[in-house]
Simulated assay, not measured.
Amino acid sequence: MTTAETGTGTGVGALLRGWRERRQLSQLRLALRADSSARHISFIETGRSRPSQEMVLRLAEHLDVPVRERNTLLLAAGYAPHYPETPLDDPAMDALRGGMERLLAAHDPYPALVVDGVFRVLAVNRSLGVLLDGVTPRLLAPPLNAMRITLHPEGLAPRIANLRQWRRHLLERMERQIELVRSAPLRALYEEVSAYPEPANRLLDDTDEDIAELFPFALPLRVAYRGRVLSFLSTVATFNTPMDVTVSELAMETFLPADAQTAAVLREAAPREAVPRA
């Protein structure tokens, strides 16, 4: 289980105070939301009162604490974890896994993948091979990591025409996730990929002005592929109200063609591209 970095102590009171301060809520505001009193919240945070299991879960919900860290709060308060962490290959996950696989396949001939909370690649569709073309084999050895593959100088980075903009977008995305979950493994990954040097063999170099002129509606991912530049818009989908740690950290990222040329190339290329096993 990942240990939360929130708060300055390991007791449930210190952890809850850390989450409340990160959400910029006063004790009174949190108390009103949780149908409690500011005095009781203060007693919990200072360790003068031990919250019930129900209160821990209620406060965690109103503080928008991620599912994994809700279990951390319960353990700190002396209770058993409430949310299971079921491996994705467990038979109990057959329906969920099958649904994701059908969504991935339905997105062909456009690339799509599923990642976990530290961007490990759990599943891909066939069309993702277009993006992985030319990536060094060692980055494609399991377990694959989407951030490493994208930003490493021997990964996708040399082929990204707007690398500076896309790199900034990905790092900001990781920063927002770290702010939410305070995960030590995610922080370590961020420090690793943010330190990667810029590739020496850049194929193209779009400027901010180029991108703004070509795509005023959303930042695309622009990738060189066999003599042409493909432009993608990406979307990220997560599950509503997850009750399992594994499910709470799953994210499906899908790439849509941002222009007619990209759509045509993908329709032509997808059937022959191979993808690595995640």
Rank of each mutant, 00 (worst) to 15 (best):
P51V: 02
R39P: 02
P111W: 07
E54V: 12
Q27S: 10
N71S: 05
L74Y: 04
E69Y: 02
R102C: 06
H62M: 10
R70L: 02
W19S: 00
D90A: 15
P81I: 06
E21Y: 07
S49E: 09
L96I: 14
R29Q: 14
R23E: 10
R39G: 08
G47Y: 07
R23Y: 05
E85T: 11
A77N: 08
S52F: 10
T72R: 10
R39N: 08
Y110N: 11
L16Q: 00
T46F: 00
L74W: 05
I41T: 01
R22E: 12
R70W: 03
A76H: 07
E54C: 00
A31E: 04
L28F: 10
E69P: 01
D89W: 09
G78H: 12
P109N: 11
D94K: 10
A77P: 03
L103A: 14
Q24F: 03
P111G: 08
L73Q: 03
T86I: 13
S52V: 09
V65R: 00
A95Y: 03
Q27F: 03
A105N: 12
L30C: 07
R68E: 09
I41Q: 01
Y79D: 09
T86G: 09
V56G: 01
L25D: 07
L74M: 09
Q24L: 08
G18R: 08
H107L: 05
R33N: 04
G98F: 07
R97S: 11
L57V: 05
H40F: 11
S49K: 12
R39Y: 03
D108N: 15
M100Y: 14
D35H: 12
R50Q: 15
S37N: 06
P81E: 06
S36H: 02
E21S: 12
P91H: 11
L73V: 05
L59T: 02
P91N: 10
Y79Q: 06
Q24W: 02
V67R: 00
E61S: 13
E54S: 13
A31T: 03
L63N: 02
E61K: 14
P84N: 08
Q53R: 15
A106R: 14
E101N: 12
V65G: 01
D90I: 09
A34P: 02
I44A: 01
D35Q: 13
L57C: 06
Y79W: 14
L104Y: 06
L30N: 02
G47L: 03
R20T: 03
S42G: 10
H82I: 00
E45W: 02
L88W: 12
A76D: 07
R29T: 13
A31D: 04
E54I: 08
A105G: 07
S26M: 05
A95K: 09
T72G: 00
R48T: 00
R29C: 01
T72Q: 12
L96Y: 13
M93L: 05
L63C: 07
